[in-house]
């Protein structure tokens, strides 16, 4: 009996003496830093998706993903290759070329003030910002990843990404939903509202006589730009046929989304903020310069069944003089926000 008792003691000592020291790991506590998006003067509060609140961690992760070529099939191309900060997150090529050398057929839209936008892409094919990034990542003429499973798998090989996703979304499992949510959070921070014109409205700057004349043209029947490019966003976020082509040559435009024949030739009016930086212009980048754009409207555009009712001078033209056109361009240049294109918070 005594021997058995001793055996128990000896075995117990052996068992505990062989235990390795288990280091203490702090349990992870999900505690993101929520932020409220800046509301510039003249802007309403942005509408943020309830299932994707803005956090510092989400924005940081989204920026990293935005600039990461891992999202492309051959790891060479990122969102930032088509959306360059220097061009107001648009692109100065008519069309962009994907990783397979295939050209698209749409000019890259500027990523600007998206927190106040809706119906994304030129034809409004995507209704919310969270959904917008899904398609380019797997599109064969863009980043052309095989599928989102492939993208997630690559990201999961990075301990850094797993940590960042845990901080942002309380999970170390990386999937497409959280990738696009993070990108959307970052994109919502791309706010431009400090142009010379904004400063003018705040009495922080004055416009030259030419710029003032241009403003008059922009906001009255003389140019009538304001209806489709209204303050503060300088877009109506609506779809218009602005008479680019005759009826039989029109691009389908929004019709490809709605199937409504009355939407043929209609495209989303882009924001004119930073328009000086985002050439070429229109959905197909057909106009290289602002002068060409103004000349299109000065000519009046092509009438068609779906021409926008706001194109009141279709077939007749605006009748702008050379001085008028120069003044209008000078006004458009007051919409340039240099702080936006140089903001270090938007850089990797």
């Amino acid at each position: 009996m005594k021997f058995i008792k001793h055996i128990h003691i000896i075995l117990t000592l052996i068992l505990f003496s062989c235990q390795r020291d288990i280091p203490y790991v702090e349990p992870f506590i999900y505690n993101p830093n929520y932020i409220v998006l800046e509301k510039p003067n003249g802007f309403p509060q942005a509408s943020i998706s309830a299932d994707n609140p803005m956090t510092e961690e989400g924005i940081k992760l989204g920026k990293k993903l935005f600039y990461d070529p891992l999202l492309s099939g051959d790891n060479t191309m990122s969102c930032s290759d088509c959306h360059l900060q220097i061009s107001s997150f648009a692109n100065n090529s008519q069309y962009n070329i994907g990783i397979d050398g295939i050209s698209g057929n749409r000019n890259a839209m500027a990523l600007i003030n998206l927190a106040w936008s809706k119906d994304f892409n030129w034809n409004g094919s995507i209704s919310d910002l969270e959904s917008q990034a899904f398609e380019p990542v797997i599109n064969p003429i863009e980043l052309h990843s095989l599928n989102w499973k492939e993208v997630s798998s690559k990201l999961m090989q990075s301990e850094e990404y797993k940590n960042l996703f845990e901080l942002a979304f309380n999970t170390r499992i990386i999937d497409s939903t959280n990738v696009v949510k993070a990108i959307a959070q970052f994109e919502r921070t791309l706010i431009s509202a400090d142009s010379k014109f904004d400063k003018f409205l705040d009495y922080r700057a004055s416009l030259t006589p030419s710029e003032l004349r241009g403003k008059e043209i922009f906001t009255t029947e003389k140019g009538d730009c304001f209806h489709c490019h209204s303050y503060p966003l300088f877009t109506s976020n609506d779809f218009h046929n602005n008479g680019l082509d005759p009826e039989l040559e029109m691009d389908n435009g929004r019709f490809n989304v709605t199937g409504d024949i009355n939407d043929k030739g209609k495209f989303k009016s882009p924001s004119l903020r930073n328009i000086e930086l985002t050439a070429p212009y229109m959905h197909d980048g057909r106009f290289q310069t602002l002068e060409e754009v103004i000349e299109h409207y000065n000519f009046g555009g092509h009438n068609s069944t779906t021409i926008d009712p706001l194109m009141k001078k279709v077939g007749v033209g605006l009748g702008l003089s050379q001085q008028n056109k120069l003044d209008l361009i000078n006004f458009l240049k007051t919409l340039t926000d240099t702080s936006f294109i140089n903001n270090p918070d938007f850089q990797p």
Binding site: N41, G42, F43, P44, Q45, S47, K215, F226, S230, D238
Partner: peptide
């Protein structure tokens, strides 16, 4: 002005009914 309202309010930005100038 629309800056005073939620974007989807009848007087909000998304209605495109405000002449700002």
């Amino acid at each position: 002005t629309p800056a005073n309202y939620d974007v989807n309010h009848p007087l909000g930005l998304n209605q495109n009914t405000f002449w700002a100038m």
